[in-house]
Measured scan of single mutants.
Amino acid sequence: TTKIQIRLADGSRLIQRFNSTHRILDVRNFIVQSRPEFAALDFILVTSFPNKELTDESLTLLEADILNTVLLQQ
């Protein structure tokens, strides 16, 4: 498993454990389930350093190389 910290656009944080085989789409779905107010918003996930937009949501967390990292919601 891996721990992902997500810094949300409103300044708050979410921390969740995922399997390395989960997909970026699963992280997006977790955000929307945790904070339904973001469901209607068009947002992207970005790595904190170096900044990289995670546009291919079909990638696993392992394939995207974002295990144990911080993601930013923009």
Rank of each mutant, 00 (worst) to 15 (best):
T1W: 07
T1N: 07
T1S: 10
T1M: 06
T1V: 04
T1F: 15
T2S: 09
K3G: 04
K3H: 09
K3V: 13
K3T: 14
K3A: 04
K3L: 13
K3E: 14
K3Y: 14
K3P: 02
I4V: 09
I4N: 09
I4R: 09
Q5P: 05
Q5V: 12
Q5I: 14
Q5R: 07
I6N: 04
R7V: 14
R7D: 12
R7C: 08
R7S: 10
L8Q: 02
L8R: 00
L8K: 04
L8V: 03
A9Q: 11
A9P: 11
A9H: 10
A9G: 00
A9F: 13
A9R: 02
A9S: 06
D10S: 02
D10Y: 08
D10K: 02
D10H: 02
D10T: 04
D10C: 00
D10E: 07
D10L: 03
D10V: 03
G11N: 06
G11P: 04
G11H: 12
G11Q: 07
G11D: 11
G11A: 01
G11V: 05
S12F: 08
S12Q: 05
S12L: 06
S12N: 04
R13E: 14
R13S: 11
R13A: 08
R13M: 12
R13Q: 12
R13N: 06
L14G: 01
L14F: 07
L14N: 06
L14Q: 05
L14Y: 07
I15M: 12
I15L: 02
I15E: 15
I15G: 01
Q16C: 12
Q16H: 14
Q16K: 14
Q16L: 04
Q16E: 04
R17C: 11
R17K: 10
R17G: 08
R17W: 08
R17F: 07
R17P: 06
F18T: 01
F18V: 06
F18H: 00
F18E: 11
F18P: 02
N19Y: 04
S20H: 11
S20Y: 12
S20D: 08
S20N: 11
S20T: 15
S20V: 15
S20C: 12
S20P: 14
S20E: 13
T21R: 05
T21K: 09
T21I: 04
T21Q: 14
T21D: 12
T21Y: 14
H22D: 15
H22L: 12
H22V: 10
H22Y: 04
H22F: 05
H22R: 08
R23T: 11
R23V: 02
R23C: 06
R23A: 05
R23M: 09
R23Q: 03
R23W: 07
R23D: 04
I24G: 02
I24S: 01
I24R: 05
I24T: 02
L25E: 12
L25C: 14
L25V: 15
D26W: 07
D26R: 04
D26S: 05
D26H: 03
D26E: 03
D26G: 03
V27S: 04
V27I: 14
V27K: 07
R28C: 02
R28I: 04
R28K: 14
R28G: 05
N29E: 11
N29K: 07
N29C: 00
N29A: 08
N29M: 05
F30S: 01
F30R: 01
F30W: 07
F30C: 01
F30T: 00
F30A: 10
F30E: 11
I31Y: 07
I31P: 04
I31K: 04
I31F: 06
V32W: 02
V32Q: 00
V32H: 02
Q33P: 00
Q33V: 02
Q33S: 12
Q33G: 01
Q33A: 11
Q33Y: 06
Q33L: 01
S34E: 11
S34T: 15
S34G: 04
S34A: 13
S34N: 12
S34D: 00
S34Q: 14
R35D: 01
R35N: 04
R35G: 01
R35Q: 00
R35S: 02
R35Y: 08
R35E: 01
P36Y: 02
P36F: 05
E37K: 03
E37D: 10
E37G: 04
E37V: 01
E37L: 07
E37F: 05
F38A: 03
F38G: 06
F38Q: 10
F38M: 15
F38Y: 14
F38E: 09
F38T: 02
A39L: 05
A39F: 05
A39D: 00
A39M: 09
A39Y: 10
A39I: 11
A40C: 08
A40R: 11
A40D: 15
A40T: 14
A40N: 11
A40Y: 14
A40S: 14
A40H: 14
L41K: 12
L41A: 08
L41H: 14
L41S: 11
L41Y: 10
L41T: 14
L41R: 09
D42W: 04
D42N: 15
D42E: 05
D42C: 00
D42T: 02
D42Y: 01
D42V: 10
F43P: 07
F43W: 15
F43K: 11
F43T: 03
I44E: 07
I44L: 04
I44F: 03
I44K: 12
I44R: 12
I44Y: 12
I44T: 11
I44N: 03
L45C: 09
L45A: 03
L45F: 06
L45S: 02
L45Y: 07
L45H: 08
L45R: 00
V46H: 08
V46K: 12
V46S: 12
V46G: 02
V46A: 07
T47K: 12
T47H: 08
T47Q: 13
T47E: 04
T47V: 01
T47Y: 10
T47L: 04
T47R: 14
S48H: 08
S48I: 05
S48Y: 08
S48D: 09
S48M: 11
S48V: 12
F49N: 15
F49V: 13
F49T: 13
F49H: 13
F49W: 13
F49C: 13
F49Y: 13
P50N: 15
P50F: 03
P50D: 15
P50I: 04
N51V: 14
N51H: 14
N51E: 14
N51S: 13
N51C: 13
K52M: 05
K52I: 01
K52D: 01
K52F: 06
K52S: 02
K52W: 00
K52H: 09
K52L: 03
E53L: 08
E53V: 15
E53T: 10
E53N: 05
E53C: 07
E53I: 09
E53S: 06
L54M: 08
L54A: 03
L54V: 11
L54E: 02
L54Q: 11
L54C: 10
T55E: 07
T55L: 09
T55F: 05
T55G: 10
T55H: 13
T55D: 04
T55N: 11
D56R: 03
D56K: 03
D56L: 02
D56T: 03
D56P: 05
D56Y: 04
D56Q: 00
D56H: 03
D56G: 02
D56E: 01
D56C: 03
E57Y: 06
E57I: 10
E57F: 00
E57K: 05
E57T: 10
E57V: 08
E57L: 02
E57S: 09
S58R: 07
S58C: 13
S58G: 08
S58E: 10
S58P: 01
S58Y: 03
L59P: 05
T60D: 01
T60Q: 02
T60V: 04
T60Y: 07
L61I: 08
L61E: 09
L61P: 02
L61C: 04
L62I: 11
L62M: 12
L62P: 06
L62G: 15
L62K: 15
L62H: 12
L62Q: 15
E63N: 09
E63T: 02
E63V: 02
E63Q: 12
E63L: 02
E63Y: 00
E63K: 00
E63P: 01
A64W: 07
A64Q: 11
A64I: 07
A64P: 03
D65N: 11
D65V: 03
D65Y: 04
D65P: 07
D65E: 08
D65M: 01
D65W: 04
I66T: 09
I66E: 04
I66V: 15
I66Q: 06
I66C: 14
L67Y: 06
L67N: 14
L67G: 15
L67M: 15
L67H: 14
L67R: 13
L67P: 11
L67E: 13
L67S: 14
L67A: 11
N68G: 15
N68K: 00
N68S: 10
N68D: 14
T69P: 08
T69S: 13
T69R: 07
T69W: 11
T69C: 10
V70H: 09
V70R: 14
V70D: 09
V70T: 14
V70N: 10
V70K: 15
V70W: 05
L71G: 05
L71C: 10
L71Y: 14
L71F: 14
L71V: 12
L71E: 15
L71T: 13
L71N: 07
L72S: 01
L72N: 08
L72T: 12
L72P: 02
L72F: 12
Q73E: 04
Q73G: 02
Q73H: 09
Q73R: 03
Q73M: 15
Q73C: 10
Q74L: 01
Q74V: 15
Q74I: 15
Q74W: 09
Q74G: 06
Q74S: 02
Q74M: 08
